[in-house]
Amino acid sequence: MDILSILADSTRSAFGPVAAVYALAAIGLNLHFGYTGLLNFGQVGFMLVGAYGVGISVSVFQLPVLVGFGIGLLCALVLALLLGIPTLRLRADYLAITTIAAGEVIRLIYRADFVEPLTGGVFGMQNLASGFRRFNPFESSARYGFGDITYTGTHLWTMVVTWSLVLVMVGVVWLLMHSPWGRVIKGIREDEEAVRSLGKDVFTYKMQVLVLGGLIGALAGCMMAMHQAAIQPDQFKPQVTFFLWVILLLGGAGRVFGPVLGAMAFWFLMDFTDGVLRGMGSMGWLPFLDSPDYGALQLAFAGLMLVLLIVFRPQGLIGDRKEMLINVK
């Protein structure tokens, strides 16, 4: 097994377009959970409506890409309102149940037969990115990068756009969290009744956060569609949300750069374990496992990481442990 090439591959995916997309979606989740304490277990639903919003606009209605982005975001807005109105007045667990169920039900609806003319059913949609790649300033098949870590021009273009969006969103979150609005939001995370007793309309604030974080998630979905040039309903399974949770907790919830660091670290780890598993498999060290099992093992590993992080390092990579421990409710 060539550990150096595994490391190079892992590093490449840590900075690659997929990591950028997940970082973006995790920023939305950070707004929800890290700052406001909303338990959103259905962030993938926002990504899905974003991706399909742009996909359907571009491929079925032949609209320009930017209009497609707008439609994707609009869908996310509607979804956030639908989820928020019944649940945000209730205890946190109701939102958790509703979002996890809604995320999965949306996927089932989008892959159903009767919407196939629109969504392509289980097959999804292709050829979505030509409008986006038309603006690619790089040579699409040339390779850019250092040493073993190179990207094609197409990927580099996606990376530039997505990481820029990540930076913009990081900036937006920073500005918001260092304002009186952010103070109210953090107050709601600590104790929403106390904030309500001071005359703040907690429901409206929570709704604003749900919408904003959902929009960022939808933007991530749009970029995913642009990156892959094709989308399929089954890539929006609930594990995407759980990956986002690992990313958020790994990086540090309630930290501006937490999701960004988390996404990089997570995809590095995922590719690294994958490389090592395959390497060990090819040397015959894993007698009981077939190569399809590696993917399952990785997902189990992600789950284990979630458990261990919560139990042993709830503050993530860049959080403050003392701050976490203060919270004895």
């Binding site: 995370r189 600590e190 701050e323």
Partner: peptide, 10 residues
């Protein structure tokens, strides 16, 4: 409130 609601991490 009876059980004080200090916003602990602010």
């Amino acid at each position: 409130f009876q059980l004080t609601k200090a916003l602990t991490r602010l």
